[in-house]
Design a protein around this nucleic acid. Structure first.
Lengths: 108, 108
DNA sequence: AAATTTCATCGCAAAAATACGATGAAATTG
DNA sequence: CAATTTCATCGTATTTTTGCGATGAAATTT
């Protein structure tokens, strides 16, 4: 047994964990950074920004898409990706809710 | 080769990825939730809140601590944990910076 | 129509994460 | 001082993640 026990946690916990997990790799942060920097749908060129093989970048894009953080469309021979603003807002809201009661460092 | 290529990414990218990764498991979100709910150092009882084996919870606590999201001290026979507010702030700031330019959903 | 470009998917190998029982250390209790 | 409590760590099994080359599909170019 090594699979994570998703079913025993709340929907909120699973939702936040899924979004955070998608952010939990520097390559995916780098992808989001590039998309955010341009703030438009980026068609192509994503692969060129990263020091990884094309297939690896494609896989990371798929994971970001699967988590809902980005959306992608096909434009001719190219694939266009952009950040899903709603999803980002959701992530921030979940974080704010989670840490709402935490106002200062603990004493221990 | 399967190890993640941390060295080729920026410090910022690695830092955010590390914090997000720590949040990227529902058990760890649940732990943070419990710590946040009480908003004090929690000594003991953390294990009882989760439907996981004691050793597994201990491991998750270790990861949260290693990422800096919580701090832990030993109080007699018990271990006390609480949320590291600075770390939470840092995470929020990194997210805000990352998505600062993203103000609306894309059109594609 | 053939060649090229762009990118997703497949298959594989290596590494990391997840989970648990067993064990042990340190403090507390009886 | 023996028994108990609390929890970290070790060892191990399983699953998931990461990464890449190879391949193929779809559109574009020559």
């Amino acid at each position: 047994m090594a699979a994570s026990k998703i079913e025993v946690f709340t929907d909120i916990e699973n939702e936040l964990a899924e979004l955070a997990k998608a952010l939990g790799h520097p390559a995916r942060v780098a992808i989001l950074r590039e998309l955010a920097r341009r703030n438009v749908c980026v068609c192509g060129e994503i692969v060129n920004v990263l020091p990884l093989a094309q297939s690896t970048v494609s896989q990371h894009l798929k994971e970001l898409k699967s988590a809902g953080l980005i959306s992608g469309t096909v434009e001719g021979v190219k694939s266009c990706y952009c950040i899903n603003h709603d999803s980002v807002s959701r992530l921030k809201n979940l974080l704010d809710e989670l840490f709402a009661a935490v106002s200062q460092n603990c004493s221990c």
